[in-house]
């Protein structure tokens, strides 16, 4: 049995989630609710929970502020949000977990199981640090990405990624040091967040770091040459968009 607390500024959200946990997650004991970051800190110090459900959007201090308070939190975090698209990108980039409100019961169960499993892995600190370092004044600036591989989560600097190649349910990250990392998620899962980092889907099967494009060679769709000398096809449909992004008329 692990202990959990629920942090949310809206009372109905807190009560509802606590209720769901106690009714449907038998491994978890919801020991308390907090309506703000400050109240949450008190509650955490008191109960020492293994799991914190953390609302992102709260007045005064938002959910991320709680994490700034702890250098290396001893609890696992599951974020909750009604609709914070941009924050979700950051959370996904750090391979952290989140639930959308209203909470889906199955997603809740999966997230809880995962949190219990990962409590042993002890790499949450690194993932949280990705989130923390990406937080600028008011928005996000991403530097690193957490990639789930068959061996666990691996951390990479985004500017070292040349391109991501789709391979059915997997994708392959090609790095500037010639390394290729196989990730157990489809390319579409990374598309949104990498778009924020100057990546562009230039073909059905390739998303390219535009900062690594050395030149564009014309053709029906044409192709780009990357800084490592590799060629990547541009699809006919995306040609105009790619040329525009590269500032070619």
């Amino acid at each position: 049995m692990i202990k959990a607390i629920v942090v949310d500024d809206e009372v109905k959200n807190r009560e509802g989630l606590s209720k769901m946990i106690s009714q449907f997650c038998h491994d978890v004991d919801a020991v308390g609710e907090a309506e703000s970051v400050d109240a949450a800190i008190e509650l955490i110090d008191e109960h020492n929970p293994e799991l914190v459900f953390l609302d992102i959007e709260m007045p005064e201090k938002n959910g991320f502020a709680l994490l700034e308070h702890y250098d290396e939190p001893e609890f696992q975090v599951i974020f909750t949000t009604a609709h914070a698209e941009y924050a979700i990108k950051a959370i996904k980039l750090a391979a952290l977990d989140y639930l959308l409100k209203p909470v889906n019961l199955n997603e809740l169960k999966v997230a809880v199981e995962k949190a219990i499993r990962e409590a042993a892995n002890n790499d949450q600190d690194e993932r949280l640090s990705i989130l923390k370092e990406s937080r600028g004044q008011g928005d996000f600036k991403f530097q690193r990405i957490a990639l789930p591989t068959s061996e666990g989560v691996e951390f990479y600097t985004i500017s070292d990624i040349l391109r991501c190649e789709a391979d059915r349910a997997y994708c392959r990250f090609h790095m500037s040091n010639k390394q290729a990392i196989i990730v157990s998620k489809p390319l579409s899962d990374f598309e949104d967040m990498l778009q924020e980092c100057n990546f562009m889907r230039i073909h059905k099967s390739n998303m390219v770091n535009m900062s690594h494009v050395r030149k564009y060679v014309k053709g029906r769709g044409g192709y780009v040459v990357l800084t490592d000398g590799s060629h990547v096809d541009v699809s006919v449909r995306r040609k105009d968009e790619v040329m525009k992004a590269l500032g070619i008329n």
Binding site: E60, A65, A84, E85, A87
Partner: peptide, 9 residues
Amino acid sequence: LRSLRVGSH
């Protein structure tokens, strides 16, 4: 209060 909130919604 808002400026302490996240993101740009």
